[in-house]
Nucleic acid binder design. Structure first.
Lengths: 208, 208
DNA sequence: GTCCCTCTCCTACCTTGGTAGGAGGCGGCG
DNA sequence: CGCCGCCTCCTACCAAGGTAGGAGAGGGAC
């Protein structure tokens, strides 16, 4: 039996979620809280397996509550359930220690499987949240040889190394070519990208 | 019926996967390829719903194949199935356009549900891959007002402008100080941050 | 074949960046 | 008060970056 605690400021929502959980035979609602402060207190007493947490709440919000609860008990499984899945909610929530992130417009059984996943140590995410997560993670790749228009293969290579902060001599050594060749490529790169100096070129290498 | 194409250089693996898929009533294996080149050709002809793709392959590897396939048909669903889930495989694969990423040590039914998810437009990920994805995405939070230790107010100011790609002369003009003063600050910054040159300093200005 | 692009490298020159060392003014602190 | 840290600026020098122009080798397109 999975012991669940519900945190949401809207009583109606809480009631609906409780009914939903009660309908599942392996899930039991052991407590409810209407704001962050109550959630923190209740969680330390009840020690539920999974805490379903709304973010927008009066007083202490869900992010703060999550952060406190996880800080007090790192094994706590906080599953965020909210209406808004934008970056301003998602990343702070994950930063705070939430193990999953579901949206309220998800089908009911997604919440139930999400709760089961959270209890099992997994990380449930709504699909479009997941998509943004992936995009973000990919954009954050340090080695980002993002295809730049109009540059030759060799130029792209040089551009990447400039972006790493290497000097012309280092680039030459790395690419087994002469320093003058590197300069030739860099001059071409600066003209093509409109960079007045090497630092701007390096910045260009990172974000267009 | 979901039409699946299998890409893996090891024939034994392909046979195993084929049996697994054949056992599922809603999945049909319509083609196999042993390397990237064959995968690209076959995919354009078969137009499978889902392509299960290994990464390590002789000749054209899975990343390249994925990239080509997705470029040719953006609606293609490439599901990576590999032994290694490290960053060097994961992010290039996602960059190339893979819609999901599963590990070969996953339970068999995880692959089947993964294929179904991929066909349905979702993004299946193995749990520990997902965990790394989350960590990366969280670490990449742009709003990181990282206070830099040990730098004076003026130095931080110069650092910011270096990060913008300004030359010493431009920085001097902007800050109403002499070029030599700018140089003094920059020398201090480079020693403090351990940057061997201005580009590295600029990169430091952006992410520690 | 010819043309064009890419990659390679060269010389020469000028600008910018970066190092070394010193110095004066200012404000806080013991 | 004297000391220290920060900010300002200086000279001088050397290293590196960047510009201009040319040139040969190789490959693909026409």
């Amino acid at each position: 039996m999975i012991r669940v605690m519900l945190v949401d400021d809207q009583q109606l929502i809480r009631a609906g979620l409780r009914m939903l959980c009660d309908a599942a035979e392996d899930i039991e609602v052991v407590g409810e809280a209407g704001d962050g402060r109550a959630a923190i207190e209740l969680a330390t007493g009840l020690l539920p397996d999974v805490i379903v947490m709304d973010l927008r709440m009066p007083g202490v919000d869900g992010i703060t509550a999550t952060s406190r609860i996880v800080a007090a008990r790192p094994s706590a499984r906080v599953l965020v359930l909210t209406t808004f899945g934008d970056d301003d909610h998602l990343y702070p929530a994950l930063q705070a220690g939430a193990c999953g992130f579901l949206l309220k417009d998800a089908p009911p059984d997604e919440l139930l499987t999400g709760i089961r996943q959270a209890a099992a140590g997994e990380s449930p995410f709504s699909q479009d949240v997941l998509r943004r997560l992936v995009r973000r993670a990919v954009d954050a790749r340090p080695e980002a040889p993002r295809p730049v228009e109009g540059l030759t293969a060799r130029e792209r290579e040089v551009l990447g190394l400039v972006g790493e902060g290497l000097s012309n001599a280092e680039i030459a050594e790395r690419m087994f070519i002469g320093v003058t060749t590197v300069k030739t490529h860099i001059t071409a790169l600066m003209t093509k990208t409109g960079s007045p100096n090497r630092v701007r070129l390096a910045l260009f290498a990172h974000r267009g």
